[in-house]
């Protein structure tokens, strides 16, 4: 399984990364490794762009029809077949059915994971083994490495974790995890649709179901409702304890996501805050 994953995803992605790196360093661009990570992430995001777009649109539509769905469920309580029928009719009316489904999600997961494992592996290579390790995986001679790479990006060592750098670089290094958390929060906030009449009704319904679920464990339900805040903190903590190269990947990924989200659904929940000021 691991070999198969390497063959179809990890090794091809390493090849793209090294090809970009060789191009950049051939052009004498400084911090080529860091820019190669950014470039690679953007390329992968563009490849996934249609998938993500269809999924964002479907999600926004689903959100719109949710109150109707709850009404249907209440109206035909106990009649599962009727509920199914009415649901399908509703989906057709709003044009949800054909474009969506969770297939786009299932396809994106391994890609995101592969990118993570590639970078984890690449940025933590010891300088003296970089050339040998990378050239073993490179498909073509023309972008094979001649020398080891410079593993720093504007002074930040891409292979080190902020948690270890605290003692040498001081608390300023905390900016890396904090910024990572902030970008993540902006994206998460944008994902929540702006409050409209519909959304308010939906919240009422959610509250009702929450009361039903209360015995399901307070921590779990708190996690779900507060994930807007908990998730960015979690990501920030990851950025603190993972190599900085991974934070570079994740921030590029998130910023691309913010732009894409803005183009498709606008500012979402973030809009209320910006208008207030």
């Amino acid at each position: 399984m691991g070999d198969f994953f390497n063959l179809i995803l990890v090794h091809p992605i390493i090849n793209i990364l090294v090809a970009i790196y060789s191009m950049l360093s051939f052009a004498h661009i400084p911090y080529a490794l860091g820019f190669a990570i950014i470039g690679l992430t953007i390329i992968i995001r563009f490849v996934m762009y249609p998938l993500t777009t269809s999924q964002l649109k479907a999600s926004a539509k689903m959100q719109k029809v949710t109150p109707h769905l709850s009404k249907i469920k209440e109206k035909y309580k106990g009649d599962a077949k009727k509920i199914q029928e009415e649901t399908m009719r509703l989906y057709k009316e709003h044009g949800i059915n054909p474009a969506a489904g969770c297939l786009p999600v299932l396809i994106q997961m391994p890609i995101i994971w592969a990118l993570y494992s590639v970078l984890q592996r690449m940025v933590t290579l010891k300088p003296d083994v970089v050339v040998a390790e990378v050239n073993k995986i490179a498909y073509f001679d023309f972008y094979k490495l001649q020398n080891t790479w410079d593993p720093s990006f504007f002074g930040l060592p891409l292979g080190e974790m902020p948690s270890k750098l605290m003692s040498t670089a001081g608390p300023l290094i905390l900016l890396v995890p904090i910024l990572t958390g902030v970008f993540q929060f902006i994206l998460s906030k944008m994902m929540i649709p702006a409050k409209t009449g519909v959304a308010v009704i939906e919240k009422d319904i959610e509250k009702k179901t929450q009361i039903d679920k209360k015995d399901a464990g307070d921590f779990a339900s708190a996690f779900q409702t507060q994930s807007l805040f908990i998730f960015p903190v979690m990501i920030g903590f990851f950025a603190f304890s993972f190599p900085i190269g991974l934070s570079l990947y994740w921030n590029t990924f998130t910023i691309f996501g913010i732009i894409q989200q803005y183009k498709i659904t606008g500012l979402g929940g973030l809009g209320e805050w910006i208008k207030k000021k």
């Binding site: 993500t52 999924q55 964002l56 479907a58 999600s59 689903m62 959100q63 949710t66 989906y91 949800i96 059915n97 969506a100 489904g101 969770c102 999600v105 994106q108 997961m109 995101i112 993540q184 994206l187 998460s188 994902m191 929540i192 649709p193 399901a216 464990g217 779990a220 339900s221 996690f223 779900q224 994930s227 998730f231 979690m234 996501g257 989200q261």
Partner: peptide, 19 residues
Amino acid sequence: QAFMSSILKNILGVNKMCR
């Protein structure tokens, strides 16, 4: 359901994904 699901939703940017 309690944890992974909301993490996935945050990573992929979907709120309601089930049809």
